[in-house]
Computed example of a mutant assay.
Amino acid sequence: MGYDVARFQGDVDEDLICPICSGVLEEPVQAPHCEHAFCNACITQWFSQQQTCPVDRSVVTVAHLRPVPRIMRNMLSKLQITCDNAVFGCTAVVRLDNLMAHLNDCEHNPKRPVTCEQGCGLEMPKDELPNHNCIKHLRSVVQQQQTRIAELEKTSAEHKHQLAEQLLHPSRSPQNHAALTPVNVSLLSLPRWVNSLQPARVTRWGG
């Protein structure tokens, strides 16, 4: 949806008005053949119903859309617009291309992050600060930490139990059993291998 025309200082060129929402173009795109321009959100919603240009009904799809010319973008960027937070007391009038930067720092922005200075230091949207309760927040933090500590203690106890079982009953450990089995087999077969050896014949002493 485009910007409300009433928010702008002076007259706005009709070429900068979206024919769908009648607002000043926001994120504008253009049909390739007829060159009609629309807000990106407006024309996307329009195409969900029909694949035509809203002005002259020529066939157009989302894939056909392209950015508007630079001269149109420059015209839009130079427009002077009032702040979104005018209803909260902001009297600033800024260039359209600087609007987002202003909103991020606007002291009247109800969603601007602020830090609680009553003790907890929690960062929250400005409009939530009047109903903020430090004690309630800190109690919630403590409960979360206690839950986490309990989970870690449970995991630690399980690991200790498993380790104790392995130390008391090493033969029950699958890994130990697998590692010792080849050694045991070799030791059992050693006497048989020794008895199978032929007596050595000494043919020469020394050298």
Rank of each mutant, 00 (worst) to 15 (best):
6 A>D: 05
8 F>W: 04
11 D>I: 11
12 V>C: 03
17 I>E: 04
17 I>V: 07
19 P>H: 04
21 C>Y: 01
32 P>S: 05
36 H>E: 11
38 F>V: 07
40 N>G: 06
47 F>L: 05
49 Q>P: 03
53 C>H: 05
54 P>H: 00
57 R>H: 07
59 V>F: 15
60 V>M: 04
60 V>W: 08
64 H>P: 04
65 L>S: 01
66 R>D: 01
67 P>A: 05
67 P>K: 02
68 V>A: 00
74 N>H: 13
74 N>L: 15
79 L>H: 02
81 I>L: 07
81 I>A: 00
83 C>Q: 00
88 F>D: 13
91 T>G: 05
92 A>I: 02
94 V>M: 12
96 L>Y: 04
99 L>Q: 01
100 M>H: 12
102 H>L: 02
103 L>T: 01
104 N>E: 14
107 E>C: 10
109 N>D: 08
112 R>N: 04
112 R>E: 10
120 C>F: 07
121 G>V: 02
124 M>H: 08
125 P>E: 09
126 K>D: 09
130 P>E: 08
133 N>C: 09
147 T>D: 11
150 A>R: 10
151 E>I: 07
152 L>R: 15
152 L>C: 12
154 K>G: 13
155 T>H: 13
156 S>E: 10
159 H>D: 14
164 A>Y: 11
165 E>M: 14
184 N>D: 13
185 V>T: 13
189 S>I: 03
189 S>L: 08
189 S>T: 09
189 S>V: 02
190 L>M: 14
198 Q>E: 10
201 R>L: 13
206 G>A: 06
206 G>N: 12
